[in-house]
Design a protein around this nucleic acid. Structure first.
Lengths: 152, 152
DNA sequence: TTATAATACATGCATGAGCATGCATTTAAT
DNA sequence: ATTAAATGCATGCTCATGCATGTATTATAA
């Protein structure tokens, strides 16, 4: 466990903590203000910026970063709430696929949730810590990592 | 959804994707090479760098970033495997607390897993994308964000 | 001392996630 | 045209997690 690997470790742990805590804050605010989970928001957001505001499940997988089954159920659950933000219909060019499309109601809701999202991001992102964590990792992993570049 | 907020969003999404994919790679390698989950590794790692190589559950909560119940069960499951890397004993100064201590067997296993961890981190960390994502977020969130600092 | 509150961990329960698999549809091979 | 393989989504199962709560211990108040 050398100096360098330790820096790499510290940087990664710090980055992970930051990601976790900001994501928790986002989840919390989206939940209380819009009754959405973070993944609900990602789902609707990616639809809102997609051409024709519709995507097949497969496309959502990589965007949201969930497994195929998880996306299938995420959309199912959301649709089952009956809030009318989503609509699913079989893709006519390939009847195996299913399109998930954003409705006008959904568009408005996404826009509102987006504002919340960005606000919380601005407020809760620990900029200095994030920059420090990343710099630590990059410095440690650089070719000439012999030099002591740590601030403290 | 202005230019600036969009940059913030893009940066956050990129950061999240990076964290997810690297964590998945770490999990995968730890699982195949050491039969540990990522949280298993974090647990044993934090013990290995703790004074006397032991910690109370409460201390592990914030370190690992899990709830109290999740940590309780994480330790329980690990101990229940009977691989002898962990030992739990009631804290004598405060009999409500439980110490989770690393054994010598555990120390050796952590050292091996640590090497794997750092190697995967070095190999799979997308440095340029990470730096770009963070810079995007910081630039967008900076006071003088009028200036166009985006590369494309 | 005794009663009340606070603390630390364990556990029942509900939920979301991944894996393996099933079903329907499309594509490729013959 | 027929058959086999591949693709896209749904679903049964298991498991890890968070919340609410229970239990044991310690701290505080009277």
């Amino acid at each position: 466990m050398s100096q360098e690997t330790n820096g790499m470790m510290e940087g990664w742990l710090a980055l992970t903590q930051i990601q976790l805590s900001v994501a928790a804050k986002l989840e919390q605010e989206l939940q209380s203000k819009h009754n959405w989970s973070l993944n609900d928001f990602y789902l609707l957001y990616f639809l809102s910026v997609a051409p024709d505001k519709k995507l097949r499940l497969q496309q959502l997988e990589t965007m949201i970063g969930l497994s195929q089954s998880a996306v299938s159920r995420l959309v199912s659950r959301f649709e089952a709430r009956g809030c009318g933000a989503l609509r699913r219909h079989v893709c006519e060019e390939d009847r195996r696929s299913v399109y998930t499309a954003l409705t006008e109601i959904g568009e408005a809701e996404v826009a509102a949730a987006y504002d919340t999202f960005i606000r919380v991001l601005r407020e809760s992102l620990p900029e200095r810590e994030l920059e420090a964590a990343v710099e630590t990792m990059l410095a440690v992993n650089a070719p000439a990592s012999e030099a002591n570049v740590s601030g403290d």
